[in-house]
Design a protein around this nucleic acid. Structure first.
Length: 1052
RNA sequence: GGGUGAUUAGCUCAGUGGUAGAGCGCUUCGUUCACAUCGAAGAUGUCAGAAGUUCGAAUCUUCUAUCACCCA
């Protein structure tokens, strides 16, 4: 039965994939024939995610490496899995719940909500797995991992032990002092009410405003404000009683702790150390803040003076830390102006004492101070901004400029003249507040799309400075290689300047932090008055009345509550009896703990029964950053902390393939954490791939609407075409500009291969399964070519040059096999010599099989289909043996030389014919002169195929060409087409002239080089030799062309 | 502002010191029995600019211009 004309990807792909899977073809160790292992960890896609072009690219490259190693007999594991994506998943599920009219997350409570999340995960979490299958990804799906597997509440089927690994690592790192709790400025998402990582923040330029305000000097002081030009000449002089400050966020003025100027800024030098007034808030409690120096302000930007709001700006935070300036938090978790704590008057009074150096505050104390004026409390931050601006302006403390100041960003408009009904033309004298309209960079939450607020909060941090060293060393000394080189620089740059890593998130979906808190009962003034080791009623009462709020908390980490109990002995142990015998119990939160303790003490007061005294502790409500779990991906997926055989066998893994955007967030963290936890590198190579853009080079984005869905592409062109396109364009470190035409082009490539196979099949030259030992030049030649491409592909893949491998195969399969070999084989199939026909069938069969094998990692579906169609095989192509033959074994230089000669002759004749307008179908006679032995032998050997492909009728050897002959020079002979009467002599002259001109250029270069004695001295021998040979050949050609031209001139 | 990279045919891009290549597109021709998702032939380049190193530079160095990305 004849094969179809094309490969039907749409129907075949699913069938083929099922066959692979049901045969267990992708299982760890499948097809292993040697001891070496090869393991790739998939970068876990987000469980809520669906396949986008980046995934398609990334997983294509992984699959190529994995299939290649598997065919080569490595014990191969491609470990798949997903991460639990805290925020994204929580958001998706909350939205689903809302859509279905359910209770909200907070209404239903944590436990019920998490149940819903698990339900959702089980129902929808497999989307991306099925999409990866459509791409042909050969992961061992039986080992699919999940970063929340084994967590409390995980339903059946989610019972891995990733949770154990995460919790164990947290506790160990905590115990080693590598994790600590602290108050730092973090990116706060007011919508989700959680800290988020830098990765989840998108800095976008948006139209904004810069307001300029006057901060009056304390006590009505004045100074002379001077502006000087480069030469020191005064260009502006003014008596001022204020310092001018610009800000894009006026509402944060309420939390200012200082005004900073650059130490070199002469304009403000006399003011340093003095106080100025924040021009907002009730007049009677207006706060004063110091004017300090710091390197941060840029004297050339704005007024050169900067307000410092340490609790709401990352730069200001650093300045505040350096200058011991208090950081006053102004907003709550929803980014509304705080509405807690003491009234403004009280808070402002305390802040004043601090500013005047009369008082210092601890971090926690500072945080209790609410400096939002009473009338602004509870407002949204943007409403508060409007009010602040309005109040300052009303008070005359906005910087005023003429209405036509260009910084206002208004188009200049001439006012109408009074006689035309307009106001008097006094706009230029009219002053307005300086509100610059200018684009500003604003941080947005990538999920919530709301403006991110830098917020001073208590969080858990990894002390990255303590674990970064080994991660840097491993790359420096080459144990882990990062490709391309550029990304190694990025890695170093980031790790060398690493910041503490905030790992807590105020979410529910995630690994709950294994830390329990208890009240600190060791107040400094706690005394046992009688010194009798017993607490009497008075003492107990004091404990209660004083409350626990100010006493702070104690905390301990452990894998579970039972394990943490014993640790609280440090709080209880040396307390006076009977408190030292308290039982540790677990309660929901701090309030419950205070209540339980009070109740317990009260009860004791009545009963005097110490056995009922309890010490309540509660667990941290927050969860860990998803990246903290992802950081353990290499060991966690292999079963750690259990010492599984897989861990033993596949760790450290081999290659990580990932995008440049997560070098910091994931690669660096995996390096640090694996080295910190198990003391080894997670992988020996990181291949960082570039970005897939649209055909115009724009980033694909939903808002631009230029997203190409890989699944749609697969529907349209087949997975193989998409994969081959991505591989062929994967030049290291260069972004891809993807167009559908390109994909279509590679679809055509598949069809080309398909039809070559179809041709072979029609000639019964398929599935013969022998390694041929042919005699015919053609067959020996193609085997040598095959060996060359096999070596080329292996070298390219070993160096992660996917594009070179793909393009090399393209050129070989299309350019060598489908063009020359298939064409040349036709006369041999028809040969009267049965042995020639037979060895050609064997060679054709072998060559087609080699194409399938070598292309399989790139185009797995069509090659597997052909493999099955073309013959009866021992196994599927996915498990076929990757060849190891070398060019040294198979390349026959004589055959190679002969075929090169044959091809150049055919091309020469074809070209001459086309240019001379010889009808394509016409078979013409050909003459030859100066026929040397090698050329004669090559002709004799290949006459049939030359005649066929060049459309020649006969060959006649002559002494000299007749008039009107088209000349085709080749090595060792000159051919001529006697076409007098058919050809145009002038046209032939022009053709020869053109060829000569081109040759002349080359000859000039070659002769110039060889004439230069320094070239002969300095250049390597083989280069000189090559140049000489090249020159000789060109000169021969030139001579022949000149001769031909001369003959034409004779005719006139 | 700091960092990293790019600039090669109409387009998209390879090309790490030996004199410039591919794919697509374009023009002309072709219904030869594997393939029109094809075949044959053809045109197209101051390798961004300048200087330097070298026998020799698209390639190495420096500067300039333009663009892109990352970080502030």
């Amino acid at each position: 039965m004849a094969m179809d004309k094309t490969f039907d990807a749409a129907t075949a792909e699913a069938r083929i994939y099922d066959k692979w899977e049901s045969a267990g073809a992708f299982a760890a160790g499948a097809n292993a024939r040697r001891d070496e292992t090869f393991c790739i960890m998939i970068p876990p896609p987000n469980v809520t995610g669906s396949l986008h072009m980046g995934h398609a690219f990334n997983n294509t490259l992984q699959d190529i490496l994995v299939r290649w190693h598997r065919m080569r007999g490595f014990d191969t594991l491609w470990q798949p899995g997903q991460d639990h994506a805290g925020i994204a998943t929580q958001m998706v599920v909350e939205r689903e719940l809302a859509k279905a009219g359910n209770e909200s997350r907070r209404e239903m409570g944590r436990e019920a909500f998490l149940e819903k999340v698990w339900e959702w995960k089980q129902h929808s979490g497999g989307t991306i797995i099925n999409q990866l299958k459509r791409l042909g990804a050969s992961c061992d799906w039986s080992r699919n991992a999940f970063t929340m597997s084994g967590a409390p509440g995980a339903p059946e089927g989610e019972d891995g032990n990733f949770h154990d690994a995460v919790i164990k690592v947290f506790v160990e790192m905590y115990d080693k002092g590598l994790i600590y709790r602290g108050k730092r400025l973090v990116n706060w998402d007011p919508h989700f009410e959680t800290a988020i990582s830098d990765l989840e923040v998108e800095n976008t330029e948006v139209p904004g405003h810069m307001w300029h305000f006057k901060y009056p000097l304390a006590g009505g002081e004045t100074y002379e404000y001077l502006e000087k030009d480069e030469d020191g000449n005064v260009v502006f002089r003014e008596e001022r009683d204020y310092i001018s400050i610009a800000t894009t966020r006026p509402e944060t003025m309420l939390g200012d702790g200082a005004v900073a100027v650059h130490p070199s800024d002469e304009r403000y030098a006399p003011l340093v150390g003095k106080l100025c007034e924040i021009p907002v808030g009730p007049k009677e409690h207006r706060r004063l803040i110091p004017i300090i120096t710091d390197d941060y302000p840029d004297p050339d930007f704005g007024s050169g003076a900067v307000k410092i709001t340490g609790a709401h700006d990352f730069n200001d935070y650093l300045v505040a830390k350096r200058g011991s300036i208090p950081c006053y938090r102004l907003m709550d978790t929803k980014a509304q102006m705080r509405d807690d704590g003491a009234p403004y008057a009280e808070a402002a009074a305390i802040a004043m004492e601090v500013a005047q150096g009369e008082r210092t505050l601890g971090e926690a104390e500072t945080d209790t101070i609410n400096l939002v004026p009473d009338h602004l409390r509870g407002l949204d931050r943007f409403e508060a901004r409007a009010k602040v601006v309005e109040e300052i302006t009303a008070e005359g403390l906005a910087v005023m400029v003429p209405a036509n100041d260009p910084r206002l960003g208004k188009p200049k408009k001439k006012p109408e003249a009074p006689e035309e009904g307009g106001e008097a033309r006094d706009e230029e004298e009219q002053l307005v507040p300086l509100i610059e309209a200018k684009p500003i960079m604003q941080p947005f939450g990538d999920r919530s799309k709301v403006v991110i607020e830098p917020m001073l909060t208590d969080q858990w941090f990894v002390a990255t400075d303590k674990i970064v060293g080994p991660a840097l060393d491993a790359v420096r000394d080459g144990r882990t290689q990062i490709l391309p080189e550029r990304d190694k620089k990025v890695y170093f740059h980031w790790l060398e300047n690493i910041e503490p890593w905030c790992i807590s998130r105020q979410l529910w979906w995630g690994h709950q932090i294994p830390v329990w808190y208890g009240l600190n009962l060791h107040a400094s003034h706690f005394t046992d008055d009688e010194g009798d080791g017993d607490l009497d009623e008075v003492e107990l009462l004091r404990l209660l009345v004083e409350g626990f709020v100010r006493r702070g908390l104690r905390h301990h980490a452990a894998t579970d509550f039972e394990a943490v109990k014993a640790q609280f002995v440090d709080v209880i142990g040396d307390l006076p009896a009977p408190l030292n015998g308290m039982q540790v119990i677990e309660v929901a939160d701090k309030a419950a703990a205070e209540h339980a303790l009070a109740e317990s003490l009260a009860e004791y007061n009545v009963s005097q029964d110490p056995t009922h005294l309890v010490y309540p502790v509660w667990r941290d409500e927050d969860v860990l950053d998803t990246w903290f779990s992802s950081g353990l991906w290499p060991i966690g997926t292999l079963g750690w902390p259990e010492q599984t055989p897989e861990l033993e066998r596949y760790f450290p893994t081999d290659v990580l393939i990932t995008g440049f955007d997560i070098i910091f967030f994931w690669v660096a963290r995996m390096m640090m954490m694996q080295l910190a936890v198990v003391g080894d590198i997670p992988f020996h190579t990181v291949y960082v791939h570039a970005l897939v853009r649209d055909e115009k080079g724009r980033k694909m984005s939903k808002s631009v609407g230029n997203v190409i869905d890989p699944l749609e592409l697969i529907d349209e062109y087949g997975a193989d075409s998409v994969r081959f396109t991505l591989s062929a364009m994967a030049a290291m470190g260069r972004d891809l500009k993807l167009s559908k035409e390109r994909v279509a082009g590679y679809r055509n490539f598949g069809t080309k291969l398909w039809n070559a196979a179809r041709f072979a099949e029609m000639n019964e030259a398929v599935g013969l399964g022998v390694t041929p030992k042919p005699e015919a030049t053609l067959n020996r030649w193609i085997m040598g070519e095959t060996a060359k491409i096999r070596e080329e592909v292996d070298t390219a893949l070993a160096e992660y040059r996917f594009n070179d491998a793909a393009n090399g195969l393209y050129a070989f399969v299309w350019g060598k096999v489908c063009d020359w070999y298939v064409e040349f084989s036709k006369p041999l199939f028809a040969s009267e010599d049965a042995a020639v026909a037979r060895e050609t069938r064997e060679t054709m069969s072998w060559v087609i099989d080699q194409c399938l094998v070598l292309l399989h990692p790139f185009m797995p579906f069509i090659t597997e289909e052909l493999w099955e169609t073309l013959g009866t095989r021992e196994g599927m192509l996915v498990h076929a043996d990757w060849p190891e033959y070398t060019a040294a074994e198979l390349l026959d230089t004589a055959a190679d030389g002969e075929m090169t000669w044959v091809i150049s002759l055919i091309e020469g004749i074809r070209s001459a014919r086309a240019q001379m307008h010889v009808p394509a179908g016409l078979h013409v006679p050909v003459l030859v002169t100066e026929f040397n032995d090698a050329a004669r032998a090559a002709w004799t050997e290949n006459a049939a195929l030359i005649k066929r492909l060049a459309r020649l009728e006969s060959l006649e050897e002559v002494e000299s060409f007749p008039r009107g002959c088209v000349t085709v020079p080749v090595g060792g002979a000159t051919f001529g087409l006697p076409l007098a009467g058919i050809i145009d002599v002038e046209e032939e002259k022009a053709r020869l002239d053109k060829a000569l001109t081109k040759l002349g250029k080359e000859l000039g270069g070659l002769r110039g080089r060889l004439k230069n004695p320094k070239f002969r001295e300095s250049a390597p021998e083989e280069v000189v030799e090559e140049t000489e040979q090249n020159l000789a050949a060109r000169e021969e050609e030139e001579a022949k062309l000149r001769e031909a031209l001369a003959r034409l001139e004779e005719i006139g």
